[in-house]
Design a protein around this nucleic acid. Structure first.
Length: 846
RNA sequence: GCCCUCGUGGUGAAAUUGGUAGACACAAAGGACUUAAAAUCCUUGCCCAUUUGGGAGUGCCAGUUCGAGUCUGGCCGAGGGCACCA
């Protein structure tokens, strides 16, 4: 028997695919397209199991769609700008460019070992000037459209990486990469005006039917729409100061207002900049820590301005104006009215400064006199009281009424506010896309001319300096305009999330030099039909990409692809047990072995190993397995097979050697079966022919259905099942050879997306034509069916009977089953419940 | 604190959407082949009963229903998102 030589076979097919450019996508308007995309990797060194899973899932889909007759675009590229390249450069004295190139070469080689059906001709790399020059052009377009602007803001400053972070890059108050506590710092920064599209991003989100609800909800919460109104408060005796505009979602509680609180950065606060008490208050605020959590839990403190605001509905009521640490300048108007009885923060604040607490909403069915607010604000629905013309209304009714009154009396307006903030894109780093802007002596920002793009990164750069290496470069930033005027370049580079916000567009025309995309190309290929990646990008990357498409489409009728990803699938992580030695140090899986008692010990000194929880593979926990090594031992098909078999793709999967080894054995079994079938000599028609034909037909049906639903683990189970049947038929000669070969051919086709090397190799000897088998719905119907017989809902027997038999017949036969008759003896049957071809239930009365 | 998702054997999981719970695998135990091991194959898998059978059973407690893993309400547990958002 010919042994299945994994290495030779897999290499053979990879070479064929590569040489023949089998998976190169060509635009063909006559063919229906399918754009299949997995999130492109950051070239960090080697591929990890997470990549293997992500790209295997995508590859199954791509190969399946090819067989279904689609013109498939399945490209790959590199998200190659970013900080690790600079860190690595400093550590290894290797230029980021060279480090990145080396990693790309390694990872590309590794990806090829997986046998992915990728169009490598379209490969792109975001650090390539051929890529980022188009990005710079887009930046200039956005600048022209006023979708990008510069402003002074507090930014999240990562002291370890000496750079600014986006809000989304701050996790639990720490830098997402460095893990160091983030500081607040005021800097002049470039922003993309994503806020402008808040409502559209929200509206279109609801229409994305093939996105996970979880992701849609996360984006919805992130955008954070709230309905309310703005109310103007006049300041008592101070005619020079403007009215204070306050945003609230609870205007119904206006009669319970007892103070006004302003943000430290509110314009009115500037009046107190020279006040020593205010200065010390401000320093106290800044001392309170900068992490989100610390801010949220910090004590509420305020600075009493001594000013008073007039209650808009009752000028006799004067509300003290405070500057408070818990009011944010970048949400709403940077000012609130405090209603302590119905807002916990306001109550905490009021209790501290002995301010009035007047309840105006009480729970239904509670007497006004018995309703007291002490330390807990009442925030639920109820009935208004103490509120003049709002008395007796529910919260919702009161909100409607008070807004009408406010508008009528010209005291304010209805208002919708979003939590979403503009996207800060400036990074004080070297290894990123240069921002194509220069500054004259006055400090005006002047866009670089299109013909002067790309603004290239300098190669000779000193990365040992802290702060921005571009800024410290001796000559790079000094340049001239065409008029000869001396100007200075912008030394910030773009956030790498900008790079990944349009790469899927570039794939459509990756070789096109004139512009970032060619209209004919995107008209055909966009949008991405299926996008696959980790759920960790649910907000950042996916929202930015949606924004970027809107920015490109803004004032541009030719580009109308505002939703880049028609369907989204978020796959789970790859987990592995964790191991520690007795000194509490992490151990790599290859550092341990089993002793004769079945316990785990270290290979080196045979000491006890402590097994920890299974967690997502990570270098820091050392619970990682090298994909290349695994491919060397088991082959790509086995690794792919295992990745699909053990868990549904959207859930986490447990890496296990037993699992991979089982997959390996199964691949070998399939090969053996293939040879046994091919070696068979002719034989007459046998009784098993129909059985096998029907079973394969059902498998075709099930596999197709399950592939369409991303139930790849069930697909694998389907394949096991049909193998078990085929094996039985081969070993026991139950089927004629003609039928056997014909049915096996279909199975090899089903194997194509799952184990492509093996499937191609099997197929080569049967039939070189590739196709996706169609099921015959007539064959799906079985002649016989199994009916469950219940008595009072309990299973008492089963009945094998021709499909669609008459109910009377089934009842008659059921009664003949000994165990059934035993249970209906001496009872009266009230009724039968019959579910066609499935179940019969006798309901009795004793 | 608010919002969301998920709880099925020793393990990963299936379950035609309200109709035989545990398909398909992994692990374990026993057996067959073998001098032996590996590989391969078979059997078993909660409780009671010698078998035909009977009972319990999908985190817990109720409910709807002839019938609930699936629907409803409450509770417990795990994971995730947001968090001075006015």
């Amino acid at each position: 028997m010919e042994r299945y030589n994994i290495k030779n076979v897999e290499k053979k097919w990879q070479d064929i695919w590569s040489k023949k450019k089998t998976y190169a996508a060509v635009l063909n308007n006559k063919k229906k397209k399918f754009y299949c995309l997995e999130m492109f990797p950051y070239p960090s060194g080697k591929i990890h199991m997470g990549h293997v899973r992500n790209y295997t899932i995508g590859d199954v889909l791509a190969r399946y769609k090819i067989l279904r007759g689609f013109n498939v675009l399945h490209p790959m590229g590199w998200d190659s700008f970013g900080l690790p390249a600079e860190n690595a450069a400093r550590e290894n004295n290797l230029h980021p460019k060279d480090w990145t190139k080396k990693n790309i070469d390694t990872m590309k080689k590794q990806l090829k070992l997986l046998g992915l059906a990728l169009d490598w001709d379209r490969e792109i790399s975001t650090c390539d000037p051929e890529y980022y020059k188009h990005q710079q052009e887009f930046f200039l377009e956005l600048f022209k459209k006023k979708l990008v602007y510069k402003k002074d803001t507090y930014v999240n400053w990562d002291p370890a990486e000496q750079t600014v972070l986006a809000n989304e890059q701050v996790i639990d108050g720490k830098g997402w990469r460095s893990g160091v506590a983030v500081e607040r710092k005021k800097l002049s920064q470039w922003f993309f005006n994503i806020k402008k599209f808040s409502q559209n991003l929200l509206d279109e989100l609801q229409k994305l039917e093939n996105w996970p609800d979880k992701v849609k909800l996360m984006q919805k919460n992130w955008i954070g729409k709230s309905y309310g109104c703005e109310i103007n408060f006049q300041i008592d005796k101070e005619k020079k100061l403007n009215k204070i505009k306050v945003f609230t979602t609870r205007p119904d509680t206006i009669f319970g207002a007892s103070f006004i609180a302003l943000s430290v950065d509110h314009p009115i606060a500037k009046k107190f900049e020279k006040n020593n008490n205010f200065i010390s208050f401000k320093t106290e605020c800044s001392k309170m820590g900068t992490t989100e959590e610390a801010l949220a839990n910090a004590e509420k403190i305020g600075f009493n301005t001594g000013l008073f605001a007039l209650h808009p509905l009752d000028k006799k009521i004067k509300l003290p104006i405070f500057i408070a640490n818990f009011v944010l300048m970048d949400y709403g108007t940077g000012a609130i009215f405090g209603c302590p009885a119905h807002d916990q923060r306001d109550l905490d604040f009021a209790n501290k400064y002995n301010l009035k607490v007047l309840p105006v909403v009480k729970p239904k069915n509670i007497d006004t006199t018995k309703f007291v607010i002490k330390n807990e604000a009442f925030t639920e629905d109820g009935i208004l009281f103490n509120s003049n013309f709002l008395n007796g209304l529910t919260v919702n009714e009161a909100i409607k009424k008070i807004i009408k009154v406010i508008i009528k009396k010209n005291l304010g307006t209805r208002k919708i506010t979003y939590r979403l903030k503009d996207w800060g894109v400036s990074r004080q780093r070297y290894w990123g896309c240069p921002i194509p802007i220069v500054y004259n002596k006055k400090g005006d920002a002047i866009p670089v001319k299109k013909k002067d793009l790309p603004v290239l990164l300098p190669d000779n750069v000193d990365l040992k300096v802290t702060a921005n290496p571009l800024d410290k470069h001796p000559t790079w930033k000094f340049t001239k305009l065409s008029t000869g005027e001396k100007v200075i370049r912008e030394t910030d580079t773009l956030d790498t999330f900008v790079d990944s916000s349009w790469y899927f567009v570039r794939f459509c025309s990756s070789k096109y030099k004139k512009y970032g995309y060619k209209l004919a190309d995107i008209k055909y290929w966009m949008p991405v039909d299926q996008y696959i990646g980790g759920v960790e990008h649910a907000i950042l990357h996916l929202l930015y990409s949606r924004f970027f498409m809107r920015a490109l489409a803004y004032n541009n009728k030719k580009f109308n692809y505002i939703e880049p990803f028609k369907s989204l699938f978020t796959q789970g992580m790859v987990c592995h047990e964790t191991y520690k030695n007795e000194e509490n140090q992490w151990l790599y899986p290859e550092e341990i072995e089993k002793n004769s008692d079945g316990n785990l010990i270290t290979k080196k000194d045979k000491k006890r190993v402590v097994i920890g929880a299974s967690e997502a593979m990570s270098k820091s926990r050392k619970n990682i397995v090298d994909p290349e090594e695994m491919i060397n031992i088991y082959g790509a098909d086995s690794i792919r097979w295992f990745m699909l078999s053990d868990s549904p793709p959207e859930r986490d999967v447990q890496w296990s050697l037993e699992g991979v080894s089982a997959a390996f054995k199964f691949i070998q079994k399939l090969w053996k079966l293939n040879n046994e079938i091919l070696d068979k000599k002719d034989s007459p028609i046998k009784s098993g022919d129909v059985t096998l034909e029907k079973a394969v037909n059902k498998t075709v049906y099930n596999v197709t259905k399950n592939l369409d639903n991303f139930q790849y683990n069930v697909v694998i189970a389907n394949m096991h099942e049909i193998y078990n049947l085929l094996y039985d038929h081969v070993i026991n000669n139950k089927t004629s050879n003609k039928t056997l070969k014909k049915q096996w051919e279909k199975i090899t086709m089903l194997l194509m997306p799952l184990a492509p090397h093996l499937a191609h190799e099997c197929c080569e000897k049967i039939n070189k034509r590739y196709y996706w088998p169609k099921h015959d719905s007539k064959l799906l119907k079985d002649e016989n069916c199994t009916i469950v017989i219940q008595v009072d809902g309990r299973k008492r027997g089963i009945l094998e009977i021709p499909t669609n038999s008459k109910e009377i017949m089934i009842i008659k036969k059921s009664r003949e089953i000994a165990n059934v008759s035993k249970h209906i003896e001496n009872t009266t049957i009230i009724k039968n419940i019959y579910i066609k071809n499935k179940l019969l239930n006798f309901i009795t009365k004793k």
